[in-house]
Design a binder for these strands. Structure first.
Lengths: 341, 341
DNA sequence: AGTTTACGAACCGTGTATCGG
DNA sequence: TCCGATACACGGTTCGTAAAC
């Protein structure tokens, strides 16, 4: 005989399937004596629930879905994702909730996966990352009426829940710091312009120009790769009048930029200050170590998981959790601009 | 009405459920005309298969399971895991096979999850990592008669399949290189002794002593954390007669060791050579850059996925795939020992 | 008479074997 | 011989109902 079913237990104990189901789920409807006999038999027979059968009946799948529309190869490079995954796992596994993970080509494929997993009740909810301008995933998830948490904000995610950090505030703190050091020509090697958080950072920089009396404040969009980060840096440093400080939208790009500065004989921080959004071990082990906006990504993952689990347990009003604004950790890559720059 | 089922399609087209099932699965038993009408209706009604219902019938779950018995917090720190996950995803998502991921406390909990997922047919197969000495998971997976690939070898995994690299050969290449440089006192900051690959590396070092005429070759076990890596380094460098070279079982520990050497005023590579097992961006950005055993972990993940998918499609004899032996990439952290050392 | 206890059957959505036209 | 209908399996939950206390 294969794996035992509740029918097998029912037969052995001499009761009906229904009684076994009630007993195993701790629900009223059976006497304590019968319940004990059923539980005993289930234990002896090594019975385990069949989640597919349960899902068919409409109960919890005990899993959440994370679908990512990025090249799989970048996942291993960006410390951010690994940290986020760890944090999610730490919280989810505490309740034995698994994670259904899939990497897809683009946002349309991502939506299709949402539809499939939701209609098959494969997961109880979704985590959506990298919210974009006019993101079609928002509407899709709302239509599906499935619990979902968007990582990013504020706002613009309809009735979905969200967990977010204040990117604008973070960028302002960087620019304020650089201006206070005396920098007037600040460049920004940004990420993908279709991402909302990229837009927010670009706007924050632009908005600072007048307030801080900056002479120049240009944002160069990239695809987040170290290659484009290096290329953008090379272009910026080849200009007639160089920026005296560059802000990078990721630690990986900042690292690439630091390498380019070295190649071109531009001394950091004497001739060029470098700041990275997103902190990780990468920024700490370089020479000079890179001044970074630091946040606890592991904790962020935990918060996202927490909100999603709450939402699944009680799908009332949507949640909106603002997490701590990344704070600037000053290391060795920033200094006042040199006199002749 | 909620999501459409094959019964709804059957009603609309005016055929039986069975006919719809055959048509949607491209199986003989319906005329081409009927099939076309059914497919058309399914498309119009936006029908999607219900994986739970299928799983109940015993067909594919279109997912594989990865259960990891490590603290969740280490996943984000070890570049190895992120790279491996990326590689797995790259291969799996090409066939729209999802991954069921869960982090657990210990190996016993891991086995329990295997039992649950297998009996509920939640996944079609498993990937098992970190094989240990007398690993109870091997027996458990064999009993379950479910496709499974062990990452690590050679041998000792019964009827399960495996994908592995030659750890012994790799360690020998490191020791040979150090000996050729003139080192005679070599230390090894190892990982968890219960891991088979740790054991293999320790043995390989021990076996080299006579052959290469080493004066000293000690392995210090750790838990793979940067803290214990640092502590082990501190202990080794505090001895009367220091080792002139240290081999670390991970890049994270090598980094920690490099930091300790700096603190203690031990110059690398003049007074101490450092080599890391496992290469990543970490080893390239330090000063000095760390000589490492490099392998393509992303590709490794792809190979593991490939073998598992094959095994699921055709569960015949177990596979055993030896991957390329990690090759030594010499950077700036190794040099001949100084005269007075 | 009211409450506790348990039975039997229907149901969830899909796949497949049997059988009839 | 082909096409399609009917019926049941898969494992667990739920509901109406009836019997026992």
């Amino acid at each position: 005989m294969g794996r035992p079913t509740i029918a097998d237990i029912a037969e052995r104990v001499g009761v009906s399937k229904g009684a076994v189901s009630f007993a195993l789920n701790g629900r009223p409807g059976v006497s304590e004596a019968t319940r004990a006999r059923i539980l005993q038999a289930a234990k002896e027979m090594n019975w385990r629930p069949h989640s597919a059968a349960r899902a068919l009946g409409g109960s919890r799948a005990e899993a959440v879905g994370l679908v990512i529309a990025r090249p799989a190869s970048t996942l291993g490079v960006e410390p951010f994702f690994a940290q986020l995954l760890s944090g999610l796992q730490a919280r989810l596994s505490a309740q034995s909730v698994a994670m259904h993970l899939l990497v897809v080509e683009d946002v349309e494929a991502e939506i299709e996966v949402y539809r499939e997993w939701a209609s098959a009740h494969r997961v109880d909810g979704f985590i959506m990352v990298d919210p974009q301008v006019r993101d079609p995933r928002i509407d899709a998830l709302q239509e599906l009426e499935v619990p979902a948490v968007v990582l990013g904000g504020p706002g613009r995610h309809g009735s979905l829940s969200s967990v977010w950090a204040d990117d604008r505030e973070a960028m302002l703190s960087v620019v304020d710091y650089l201006a206070a050091l005396g920098h007037r020509r600040v460049a920004h090697v940004a990420g993908l312009p279709r991402f909302r958080h990229t837009q927010r950072r670009m706007r924050a920089l632009r908005d600072s120009v007048r307030r801080l009396g900056l002479v120049e404040a240009v944002s160069v969009p990239t695809d987040f790769s170290d290659a484009e980060g290096a290329a953008a840096t090379r272009a910026l440093l080849s200009r007639g009048r160089r920026p005296t400080a560059i802000v990078y939208d990721s630690d990986v790009m900042a690292l690439a930029g630091l390498g380019v500065a070295g190649e071109m004989g531009v001394r950091v921080p004497d001739e060029l200050s470098i700041v990275a959004f997103d902190d990780s071990v990468l920024t700490r082990v370089t020479h000079p170590a890179i001044t970074s906006l630091s946040r606890d990504t592991f904790a962020l993952g935990g918060q996202v998981a927490e909100v999603l689990l709450e939402l699944i347990a009680d799908p009332g009003r949507p949640r909106d959790l603002k997490t701590a604004t990344p704070r600037l950790v000053v290391r060795e890559s920033t200094a006042p601009p040199s006199r002749d720059a």
